[in-house]
């Protein structure tokens, strides 16, 4: 389909040509268009209301990550009143828990929080110097979980994940966020890029 806009005018309006390089009749057309679109510059520069209160109210209502809440709980000084009897019982319970828990570090995929499945992530990027994988399971931390480099240019990481849907991306050289080209599906991340989606079932995934 052809265009009715002369090529030089397009180049000027794309910012690739100066107005001085336009012939007179195209200059007038350019100025007419700029006058029309330029009228929007005089639009209201402010919102009709401040959104600060509403935004901060919602921000305060968002729960902090569990690890921050746990840390705050542990780090906050609080008075502790304990009778000798209760103290002795608590100490005995603690020792019992340690005795039961410590001998079983290799108990398999069952943990106190439920089933976790060893999941292998593979990403081919021979030119990268480092690659990590991040997602909801890593709190979207850009540092993510480092992957180890294989001999064939593949980067590999194995992570224990609970069954369910997981969104993730690879972070190449600490700056470039890349979806998994081999993922079964991708979703918009809301920032103009894609997240990959992985379904972890009861058996080993990759």
């Amino acid at each position: 389909m052809g265009s009715s806009e002369p090529g030089d005018l397009s180049r000027y309006l794309d910012g690739e040509l100066s107005k001085a390089d336009l012939p007179e009749h195209l200059r007038q057309e350019a100025e007419a268009f700029e006058r029309i679109i330029g009228s929007l510059d005089r639009g209201p520069a402010k919102l009709p209301r401040s959104v600060r209160g509403a935004v901060m109210e919602r921000v305060r209502a968002i729960p902090a990550p569990w690890w921050r809440r746990a840390w705050t709980w542990f780090a906050t000084p609080r008075p502790l009143r304990l009778s000798p009897l209760h103290g002795t019982l608590a100490l005995a319970a603690l020792i019992a828990v340690l005795l039961v828990a410590l001998p079983k570090p290799q108990a398999g995929p069952q943990t106190s929080t439920g089933v976790r499945v060893a999941t292998r992530f593979i990403y081919l990027e021979p030119n990268a110097t480092r690659v990590s994988v991040t997602g909801e399971f890593a709190n979207w931390d850009p540092a993510g979980i480092p992957m180890r480099r294989g001999a064939d240019g593949n980067w590999v990481a194995e992570i224990d994940l609970p069954p369910g849907l997981h969104h993730y991306v690879f972070v190449v050289d600490g700056t470039r966020w890349a979806p998994d080209p081999n993922a079964s599906s991708q979703v918009d991340d809301g920032f103009g890029l894609k997240n990959s989606v992985l379904l972890v079932t009861g058996s080993r995934s990759s």
């Binding site: 510059d41 520069a45 919102l47 600060r52």
Partner: peptide, 8 residues
């Protein structure tokens, strides 16, 4: 908050 008001 007002930086992108005209655009929005």
């Amino acid at each position: 908050q007002h930086a992108f008001a005209a655009y929005a």
